[in-house]
Structure formats: structure tokens, C-alpha cells
Nucleic acid binder design. Structure first.
Lengths: 209, 209, 209, 209
DNA sequence: AATGAATGAGATTTCATTCAT
DNA sequence: AATGAATGAAATCTCATTCAT
């Protein structure tokens, strides 16, 4: 009469929550948000459906958590660079841009190219959140450079927005990286654009795509 | 056993097809692609489900048709401008950019702001298709201007891509238009950016957002 | 490679609808409304889940349909009696009351005693709808009798309400019928009550429980 | 590895039990029995789920407790009236009826009208228990009055049942109280009915709805 | 006495698509 | 060209209850 009692494994809530977010992130990137069922996530983590809903009120909420985790990481990287002293402003901005491109590229490589268009929801959310959170940081540095005189920019915030629009273009066009020649041209073009848009003095942007 | 047979209205296939596309377009803009069911479309046009599938193999196909219709219109507008003779290249490019922004803005105004994030699939597809189709046109004019000497650009195609990335930014951020001050700043910033990125000679871009 | 294609049986919509209502009625009475799953209903009728929702927007809607069917039947019986000419008013009311009790008793016998308290939702709805629909009919006859002088009643409508409250008591207490002695006493008591409440002249109510 | 242990508040078991019952009662009345989750109750009382199940084996059991609490109160009120000496029987019965109506009315006013039909389970249980517990009391007084000669009734128990059926009608139709005219008519009608059903001598019932 | 993370069966519903007519 | 009844897989979410601590 023994019931095949499924082990009931209890963990620290914070740990469980992370497990769920990590599994969701992996699956969302592989198969896309909408193609991933809550049952896929709980199967991965080996918990019951109810456990999922104990931690997240809905599937959309875990998507927000996944995105937040990603953005937070990106933001903190960028912020760290910002806080370094003794860096010339133009160089600092250069580092920030490289960091943004770099992480986006890395992230994109995880996403399945095949499901490209089927992950629109996640892409859209990610892009908007990225822009919203990074614009203030870029804008601050641009503004600072403008005061310093190393840049010549009238509207730092708006300029930062358009620059970010160009940076996330990479995120939306991962096929670029498949072709080294193309990738190279894009890199050089963006280097030029950055220099011109900011009207930098005595500095050449060097990107590492 | 008499069946009250519902009127069976036959139309010219091309007309029917258009009716379906128009209804779909309206609904996709109002409620979003995923929130629109095939039954919403057929209800609107007053035909049976079968009729829909007689014209389109799947729901995604009518989305493609809707997008194609939109892009084709945009492309033809832009192409028309291109073909005008006796226009200075910089001025021609200016007109093209205005046309792109204008149509995007008009389109966005139709879309329900409320469903912003819930229409990611359509947004994403629209953006990619727009970029794919307009890049060659912009690139051609940019290249021509570079040869002429009114622009100074190394990689016309890549430059056109990044410029388009900035133009579609408006499409993704319709909230901009809600605030006149903001909208104004964006416009002026973009005017400056265009001038700098292309390194135009003897011309100032004037946008009409 | 032949697919075991499940026969696709198409029927006249009205017939299908009735099949679904009938199956639902049977199941609701046997197991209770809440204990009946939509899958129980579709299994019975041998259609797909989708078919159910093609006919009824929700499970609650089929409950309404089941109740409506029942009430309509009861109402039409009672109305038929009302419309008979050449019946003394008291006798006519007597027939109406017998009809109401009779149908309720019959219905109750179908319901599973075991699930008594687990079918509260259906009971409550049924009772309210019954009262709402029958009060006007009873009230009319009571009023007519009062004018004629065979009854002596001040407030026909309210009196009808309280009488119905007594009639549906049987519906809520099916255990009464299990005990002949009890059942008999209830019958006689109700006969007396009817006579007294209406202050009937020259007539004795005779119930057939 | 320190866990920030949440305060663990211990109380007298009887007190805890009452807290739970009171919270459940409030919630059941506001939202309905089925619409109230066990988690709503424990959140209200600020205890863990396990604590709930330490006191009540199941959700249904706390419903029974809530109902019992209510009925017990009603029964004791009515019983108190019964035990008063020096009251004429008809007057005593009148007081009892007023007490029953009064408490039901008061209770109904607490219940959310909006969730009317969604609280069927609780309504049904409450009604049955009310009838079961009050019938013997009413029957006893009716029987006593019959012996005394102030009433003329053959079957006191059954008569009491039908009278209670009329009294609980108010409970099921709270909308009555919203309309003073209607409420007034119902009251007067019931006064007349009581007098007639019991065939009272030298007394007029006066209700206080 | 009390905690609260975990369970998991199961319920309703959606909707793109098919196909016999 | 058109109909519309029928399909059915699949998805999200609920919640009473358990049990190791």
C-alpha cells in the first residue's frame, strides 16, 4: 500500500525562485516565450505546477523577472564603467557602448536563430526595457562630455536615444554576426557614426563587436 | 426539411481578398495580431471560416499580406520621390525621410496605444520588413550623394541601416508624439544627426514629424 | 499512414444543442452542477470540447439553458391549466398547485439524494427562477378568485409568493417522500393551509403529492 | 545560514479557533463560500496554512462551524423567548417569529447582494440547518397553543415547517427590503397568513420586518 | 501549536484549422 | 467560391490539502 511518494524537496525560497527564473530564461531563449509552456519550466526544475504559481502569479510575471534580471545585469555593468574615475569621457562612453553591444551579442547568440520571429514578445519587451534603463546613463555621460567640450551635442537625452536605437539594431539583426565581412563593415560604420553624431574631439571610437 | 439557407454572396475574388485584408488590418491595429481571432475577421467581413481559408492558407499569411500592403505603399511613395529628377540629392533624401517618418507616424496613430506591448509580433515583422525594403533605396541615394560629393560616407548601405534604425525608433515609441515639447526635441536632434552622419555640405535637413 | 480519422458527424445545430442540453441536464441531476465537468458532457454526446463551446459560451450558460428548459416546461403546463375555461377558480388553482408539486417531485426523484447538498448552485437557481416565473400566474388566479368572491385575499401577489415558498419546500426536502406517513401528513397540512390562507368558500383543496 | 524567523505568535487555542471562524464568516458573507480561499482566511488571521488545518480538517468544516455559530445564536434567542413565563402563547409565537425574521434580515444585510447567486452553497446549508433546528421549537409552541385552544391546528410540526418556509423566503429574497412599499406589503400579508394558518383567536400578529 | 513551501489533479477555455456539403 | 459545424490539442491557472521542520 505504499504510495510512490514523490520526494518533496523543500528549498530556500530565494533559491527556488532563481531556479525557476534560470530555467525560464533558458527555455525562453531556446524556444521563445510563447512556445514555452509553464509545464516545460516546471519539468525542468522538477517541481509541481503549483510551485510555479506559488512563486509567480502568472507566466507573464516570470517573463518580467527574466527580463529584469537581464537588464539589471546590463545596467550594473554599464554603471560600473560610469563610476570609474580617471577615464576620459569619450573613452568611458566607448567602454559603455562596447559593454552594451557585447552583452547583447552574447545574449543573441544564445537565442535560437530559427525561432527568430517567433519570439517577438520577448524581444520587444527586452528592447523597450533596455532603452528605458540605459538612456539616462548614456545621456548623463554625453551631457558631461558636452559640458567638458569633448563632445558637441545640443540634446544629450535625445541623442542618447538615437544612439541606443542603433545599438539595439544589432540585437534585432543577429544574422549580421554570421557574416564576418558584414559584421566588420557595420562595426566601422558605427565607429564613424558615433564620432560624427557626438562631434568628438581628439578621439576615435573603437568598437569590439 | 427545408433549410433556411443563408444568402450566399459571391464576389470578385480580388475584391473579397481585399475586404479580408482590410478587415484584418483594422483589427490587427486595434486589438493586436494575437488578440485578433480568425473569427473576428470573418465576422467583420460577413463570410464563413471556410472562405477565409480559401483565400489564405493560414492566419500568419494574412498578416504577411497586411504587412506587404503597408510596406508596398511606403516603398512606392519613397520610390516615387527617388525617381524625381531635378532634385538636389540632399533635398531628395530629406523628402524620403519625411515620407518614411510621416507614414509611420500616421500608422502608429491608428494603433491602439493601450495594446502597445501586446502587438509585438506585428511590430517586429513590420519593422524588419520596413528596414529590409527601404535600406536599398536609402543606400542608393546616399551612395549617389557620396559620389556627387554632397555627402561624405564610406559605407552607404550600413549607414542607411543605422539611419533607418533611428527612424523606426519613432514607430516603437508612439508616446513621443503625445508630448509636443519632446516631439520637437526629437525632431531637431534627428535633423542634426542626419546632417552629421552624412556630413552634408550646404544643406540643412528639415523634418516634419 | 492512414490517420485514424474520427468520424466527423455533422448534425442540425438545433439537434446538437438539444443533445448537449439533455446530456447536461442528466449529469447535473446525477452528480451536481459543479461536480460535472464539461468533459463529462462532451464524452456523453461524443463530440469534441470545441463543439461544446461552439454552442455555449461557458459552462454556466448551459446551466441556464437547462434551467430555462425546465422552467419553461413547468410554466407552460401551468399556463395551459390557467387557460382552460369552465373551471371553477378554486379548482383551477388546485390543479395548478398539483401540477407544480407534481413536476417538482418528479424532478427531485431524478436528482441523486446522495449529492443533496453538493448541488446547491443548481437548486438555488432553479428555485429562484421557478418562483419568479410562477408567481405572476398564481397571483393572477388568486386575484381573480378574490374579485369573484371565492377567495378572500388582500394582497394576491404577496400571498402567491408565500404559497410558492411552501410549494418549493418540497423541492428542498426530498426526504419527505421517502416516508409515506410523513408525506401524507405534509399533504394534508398543506391542503388545510391553502384553504385557510385563501379563505376559500365551498371548496376543499385536494393535493396529489 | 541564519533564517530571519518570522514571529511565531501562540495563542489560546479557543481564541485562535474563534479568530478563524470570525474571519471565515466575514469573508463568506462578503465574497461567498466558494469564492473564499483558505488562503484568504489565513491571510486575514495572519497564520500559516498549516495552522488552519490544525484547527479544521477541511474547508467545509469551518463552514459548518460558521453556520453552527449562527444557528446557535438564533436558536438560543428563540429558546429564551420560549422559556419566558407569563406570556400568552400567541404573543410568544409572535415574538419568536419576529426574532427569526429579524436575525435573518440583519444577516442578509451583511451579505453582499452582488454575489447573490454565487453563494448558493452557504445559503442552502444555512436554510436547511435553520429549518431543522427551529421547527421543533415552533412546533412545540404551536402544539401548546392548539391544546390551549388559542390556535386550531391539526399537525403542529408540519404547520411549523410551512411557516418556516415562508420566513426563510425573506432570507432568499433580500431585494424585498430595498423597496419599502414591497417590504410593507409582505409584512402585512405574512401577518394575515400567520393568523389564518393558525386560526388564532383574539389576537393579531404584528411583525417587525 | 505553528509554519509555509510544495503538491498535483483537474477544470475551463481558446482558436487555428478542416472538411463534408 | 462559399458554408459553418466540428475538431482537439494544448495552455493557463486554482486551490484544498499535506508534511517536514
Amino acid at each position: 500500500m505504499k504510495k510512490e511518494t514523490k520526494e518533496r524537496i523543500t528549498k530556500d525560497p530565494e533559491e527556488r525562485r532563481q531556479e525557476l527564473i534560470d530555467a525560464a530564461e533558458r527555455l525562453f531563449m531556446e524556444k521563445g516565450y510563447e512556445q514555452t509552456a509553464v509545464s516545460d519550466i516546471v519539468r525542468e526544475v522538477q517541481v509541481a505546477h503549483g510551485t510555479f504559481y506559488y512563486y509567480f502569479p502568472s507566466k507573464e510575471d516570470i517573463l518580467e523577472a527574466v527580463i529584469e534580471k537581464n537588464i539589471a545585469e546590463l545596467e550594473s555593468n554599464v554603471r560600473e564603467i560610469m563610476q570609474q574615475r580617471d577615464l576620459a569621457t569619450a573613452f568611458k562612453l566607448n567602454l559603455m557602448v562596447n559593454s552594451i553591444i557585447g552583452i547583447n551579442v552574447a545574449r543573441r547568440k544564445l537565442m535560437d536563430y530559427l525561432h527568430e520571429e517567433s519570439n517577438a514578445v520577448m524581444h520587444e519587451k527586452m528592447e523597450r526595457r533596455t532603452v528605458d534603463r540605459l538612456v539616462p546613463l548614456l545621456a548623463e555621460v554625453v551631457a558631461f562630455g558636452a559640458e567638458e567640450g569633448c563632445f558637441s551635442v545640443q540634446n544629450p537625452r535625445e541623442t542618447a536615444e538615437f544612439l541606443l536605437a542603433s545599438l539595439v539594431y544589432f540585437f534585432h539583426h543577429p544574422e549580421i554576426f554570421a557574416n564576418p565581412r558584414r559584421s566588420e563593415k557595420m562595426r566601422r560604420t558605427l565607429e564613424t557614426i558615433l564620432g560624427r553624431v557626438l562631434a568628438v574631439k581628439n578621439y576615435n571610437f573603437v568598437l569590439t563587436v
